[in-house]
Write a protein that binds this DNA or RNA. Structure first.
Lengths: 339, 339
DNA sequence: CTGTTAGCGCGTTCAC
DNA sequence: GTGAACGCGCTAACAG
């Protein structure tokens, strides 16, 4: 049989005092006698009293919990962002509910509904790659529920947003490849439904154009995901070209690792015959041989900043007069997989 | 200004009916006229009514939320376990609160307290490496709050537990190294405060003993963590030995990757001069050169099973008559880093 | 210093 | 078919 958790009423009954007195004693209310306070606190400890936040939250209309929805938790990118979020929230006593949409808009909506019912104080969302319609997010703002979008954009939705300047990162990478003498630079793009993938593709084209390197469509292939497996086929396709590339700029490190694998299998030498550059600076990347050149993103800061903005929004009663769009800066890291 | 979320009272007032009627209409109570039901449902939709689960949970004494505490979320091991957990809970409509202890017992306790106050229905915990005293976990069982321990043991604590048979996995790995001709087999152990690390170390010694290979203390070094960085120094120490090892069995893939890095830098050829075997089957492992031999663990199943047991416990009113200790089986995967 | 009352939002009696 | 009253656990306002 389940014995009920102890409540202030329990300890009030035991001590023959009123629940409010117990409440006051427990909350260090000034007007309370030392004796009763001590008695209450001691009994609370022996009975292992834990305040029921459900009741308190119902009263306060605030849960001190924020909801986080990410496409996936497994990637080093998002788990590092979550680290940043937790390190900001923890000292503030704010809890996180985390859920993954698995890149599905339906799951995203369902998680959203569930979190909203739980009355989280606000949302931190990086939309799924399927999410092209933002009605469900719009509902949040319509109901005055604070929301911060991070990493992936929802174009047209007017809320706080925190991004990494993908364009700059990709531009740095491609420009660097050009400057090291590469002329047949290929790009393995990510799913183009993602704003991040589109920005990187655009930067790729712009950087080539700026340096008068012709953009060839056959050098642009799209991967359907972010793991090494997703890099295999696109790379095979590139190597099979009549004039194969002398450099590959991949959407992320995962795909780049798959690309390196195929390239080495084909007997080509990296970086002598072909350079490879990734994106994200996955913690493993520097241990590959050759070590992977990449674009580092301030993931931890991204999490921290997003959480900080959300908390500010929550504490300011969600005054929407000053929507913030912040941009963080990535940095090219040159390692062994490029000249 | 924050406009309050709509409640059943709001829509009752609007329709000139009582809140109970609204409640019934929303919950498909049979005894309700179709007209009022339709009216209620429509107004609820336009007003974007979301039931307040705080109130409901307070009433039901159940939150449909479970608390998960892991040492870190960044590792492929734990994030894959979390995947398994979510895939079991999601279809059941159960939410997860996730938090990381960062291998600190103090953080673990504080998270625990916070989750308990939120009244999660149960806990899924993999204790921090610092956690040697289990009083805080004991309190949960004393208060009849369901708890399942997974991956890392809390010896002496009588609750449901789900493990991987580490001993078997490590034994397979070491025995295989012996059989492929290695005689100077080193082990980079993990923090020995961890049951998992101790089991693997014991299996290492037992496997050597069984095959009459002498166990030498200088071949056993302890790493303080699980990333490639943590593998660097221990490996340097091993290579500096008068008679360096011809095989390294590392506590996990992260450390093994660091070891491979040092070994290759030293000009040694893997696996001809020295074999390397890891543990965990990190998704990146097969893309290294040489690809890393490792011990695969059923992480996803570990998560699923732990969650399933917890849910059963919760739904059975936490009847503690039949504590379960389950063990899942790991599997050696031979790749290029060993003969 | 302490007790009483009320209400947060909801579902569930028990009436009518 | 529907409404009124009650209580989940807690704090704040109002009395004493």
């Amino acid at each position: 049989m389940k014995k009920a958790r102890t409540t202030i009423t329990d300890i009030a009954r035991e001590l023959n005092i009123s629940p409010s007195t117990v409440s006051r004693a427990l909350n260090n209310h000034p007007a309370i006698s030392k004796k009763t306070r001590d008695a209450v606190i001691e009994l609370a400890k022996t009975l292992n009293y834990q305040p029921n936040l459900l009741a308190l939250n119902l009263l306060r209309k605030r849960t001190n919990t924020i909801g986080i929805i990410v496409p996936e938790i497994t990637s080093s990118f998002f788990s590092s962002v979550i680290n940043g979020i937790q390190d900001l929230l923890s000292p503030l006593g704010v809890n996180m509910m985390i859920s993954q949409s698995n890149e599905s808009m339906e799951e995203e909506k369902s998680i959203l509904r569930s979190f909203a019912s739980i009355r989280v104080d606000g949302f931190l969302i990086s939309p799924s790659s399927e999410t092209k319609n933002f009605d469900h997010l719009k509902i949040l703002t319509d109901n005055n529920i604070p929301l911060v979008i991070f990493d992936r954009d929802c174009e047209g939705l007017e809320v706080d947003k925190v991004f990494v300047d993908e364009y700059s990162g990709a531009f740095q990478a491609v420009e660097y490849l050009v400057k090291t003498g590469c002329r047949r630079i290929a790009h393995i793009a990510g799913p183009l439904s993602l704003s991040t993938a589109r920005h990187r593709l655009k930067a790729y084209k712009d950087a080539l154009a700026l340096h008068h390197v012709p953009v060839k469509e056959e050098y642009i292939v799209e991967s359907s995901g972010f793991t090494p497996e997703h890099g295999i086929k696109p790379t095979q396709k590139l190597l099979a070209l009549p004039s194969p590339p002398d450099a590959v700029f991949a959407i992320n490190d995962g795909v780049a690792i798959g690309a390196m694998y195929v390239i080495k299998k084909a007997g080509l030498v990296i970086p002598d015959e072909i350079s490879v550059v990734g994106f994200d600076d996955d913690p493993h990347s520097c241990y590959f041989s050759p070590s992977l050149s990449t674009v580092w993103q301030p993931t931890y800061e991204l999490g921290m900043l997003s959480a900080r903005i959300l908390m500010k929004r929550i504490n300011s009663n969600n005054d929407l007069s000053d929507i913030r769009v912040e941009e963080l800066y990535p940095e090219l890291i040159v390692r062994g997989s490029s000249k």
